[in-house]
């Protein structure tokens, strides 16, 4: 398996420690080498772009320049955080599209003795690499403790599949990549219609009421579809849904208690790894109860809730149109 450059992002060793631990464990298991970029800087999140344009792109591009310098044969720069992933790919794409911006950013980089030629790197999210480079077959082979009976809401948040400059995901609204991966782990994947709705991003800091409503919708949705837990691919989503769940409950008088885990943690569990090594327990809304559902030899047939959604073909009434995935199963 080839080596990848890893742009970890500012939360990697702090708020997203569980993500870092589980990614490390899973990659070791799969023989995937992630080499951390040296002396990387913050991607600026959504804040820097709000303040200024050229400096924001220069800030992001310094990382691209570093990566191009340190790539040593690795073409792919991977980011586990959706926001970092977006910013890195956004800069790469816009520098390519806009020669004048490219020129300015590169002149700025020169001041730090650096240069970046847009298109040099492939910028990809960790999920994309696990799904498309490692592949579902390999992942399935590593599963020793299938997540049967665990109802998981696949939650991608906004920035992975949107705007998706290089068209790496199946659809901006309803991408199926995370579903496929979780199914390969044996999980009972909930058809979660809110999978790419926003977690509020930085609004938990500056406009909590706006953010709490967005979080309420996601938690309410997960509860509506009887999910035991929410799987995320982004530290920002995890932080908002997990750490602010208590505040959301206080704000609305609700009693949500849905744990939010990284997809890599679920992979590790399915691979039979030790929960502690995967950072299980670092979540603020405990996952213990939810995880009690796995490890059961033959789980009882999942009681699909009545949702008035997709009907089985044989039912009475008018027939439903067929969907492309009908043919796959």
């Amino acid at each position: 398996m080839s080596a990848y450059l890893l742009y970890p992002g500012c939360s990697w060793d702090s708020s997203a420690r569980a993500y870092a631990l589980s990614t490390g464990a899973v990659c070791r298991e799969l023989g995937l080498e992630l080499r951390q970029l040296e002396d990387w800087n913050c991607c600026g999140a959504t804040e820097y772009l709000s303040v200024d344009t050229v400096p924001a792109y220069a800030l992001i591009s310094r990382n691209l320049a570093l990566a191009a310098r340190q790539q040593n044969g690795a073409k792919t720069l991977t980011a586990p955080c959706s926001l970092c992933y977006l910013n890195l790919s956004k800069a790469d794409y816009y520098l390519e599209e806009n020669p004048s911006l490219n020129e300015k950013v590169n002149r700025a980089l020169e001041a730090g003795g650096m240069h970046y030629q847009p298109g040099t790197l492939e910028i990809r999210h960790l999920l994309d690499i696990l799904l498309n480079d490692v592949g579902l077959d390999t992942i399935r082979r590593h599963v020793t403790r299938p997540l049967n009976g665990l109802r998981v809401a696949p939650y991608l948040g906004c920035l992975l599949s949107r705007p998706d400059y290089r068209q790496r995901f199946s659809h901006p609204d309803q991408p199926h990549e995370l579903d496929l991966l979780l199914k390969a782990l044996g999980a009972d994947v909930v058809d979660y219609p809110l999978k790419t709705q926003c977690c509020g991003g930085h609004m938990t800091q500056i406009g909590p009421n706006t953010a709490y409503e967005l979080l309420r919708r996601l938690l309410h949705g997960a509860e509506q579809y009887k999910a035991h837990l929410i799987a995320t691919v982004c530290p920002m989503c995890q932080l908002n849904l997990d750490a602010y769940q208590h505040d959301v409950n206080r704000h609305f008088g609700t009693r949500f208690a849905t744990p939010v885990l990284y997809f890599t943690q679920l992979m590790g569990l399915a691979f039979g790894l030790e929960p502690k090594a995967l950072g299980i327990g670092l979540e603020l809304v405990g996952a213990r109860e939810a995880l009690a559902h796995i490890g059961v030899e033959t789980p009882p047939p999942a009681q699909a809730p009545q949702r008035g959604r997709r009907r089985k073909k044989k039912s009475e009434g008018l027939p439903m149109p067929s969907m492309p995935e009908d043919d796959q199963s």
Binding site: H171, D173, Q174, D191, G308, R309, R310, R311, M320, P321, S322, M323, P324
Partner: peptide
Amino acid sequence: PRRIPQYGYGRLANVFTSLE
């Protein structure tokens, strides 16, 4: 309309096409 998944055709039972 399955090309526009956010309109739910095929997933949501009571979304119909004009031809239907």
